[in-house]
């Protein structure tokens, strides 16, 4: 039994595959967005990082 492009397994798992694909796309967007926000806010610059460290203690 060859696993061709038209195999019924693809139909059966279509929703699962689309769901996983979309989840991964969303994850990439979130990581990118978080990185962008944190870098542009200067969270990783030494002065701000030290201030945040001080606030949390």
């Amino acid at each position: 039994m060859s696993l061709t492009r038209e195999h019924e397994l693809h139909k059966r798992r279509k929703s699962r595959n689309i769901g996983v694909g979309l989840t991964l796309v969303v994850l990439i967007m979130i990581v990118f967005g978080l990185t962008y926000v944190k870098v542009t806010r200067g969270d990783y610059e030494p002065i701000r990082a030290a201030t945040q460290q001080g606030n949390s203690n």
């Binding site: 019924e8 059966r12 798992r13 929703s15 699962r16 689309i18 769901g19 996983v20």
Partner: peptide, 16 residues
């Protein structure tokens, strides 16, 4: 057999 497995195949909504 195939029909039975198709009906019981987990869809994305089941994991959700």
């Amino acid at each position: 057999l195939n029909n039975a497995s198709f009906e019981n195949e987990a869809q994305f909504g089941d994991y959700f």
